[in-house]
Amino acid sequence: MSCLHLLNKSPSAGPLDELRKALAPGDGLLLLEDGAYFLHKPEELARLPQGFSLYFLTEDMLARGLNDPLPANATTVDYDGFVALCASHDKTASWF
């Protein structure tokens, strides 16, 4: 069963070590709030295992003035998309 992980911390502040052990193939990772700063440091995402889908919450990117190009495997979602992602995964796990 797939899990949508929510990460709202910046690359330097987030619990990446723990998340690395929890992310499974087929899961989704939504970067929101300060998680949006992963857009500026996409190389930090290489610390995570492969095989998951990556999403950025548009409002938080725009609020922070982040206009770096989206990583190739990433998609942006608004709040309606956020809700849809929760529905399309079997559960959510928040890493605040």
């Binding site: 709202n8 929101l32 709030e33 300060d34 409002e59 938080d60 709040y79 309606d80 956020f82 809700v83 849809a84 529905a87 605040f96």
Partner: peptide
Amino acid sequence: HAPPYSSEAAGTALRFAEAVLRGGH
């Protein structure tokens, strides 16, 4: 879990709740 004003998360939760209802859930 988040208080208002000292973090963004309470606002995020509110916007999420509004979107849940908007989505017909």
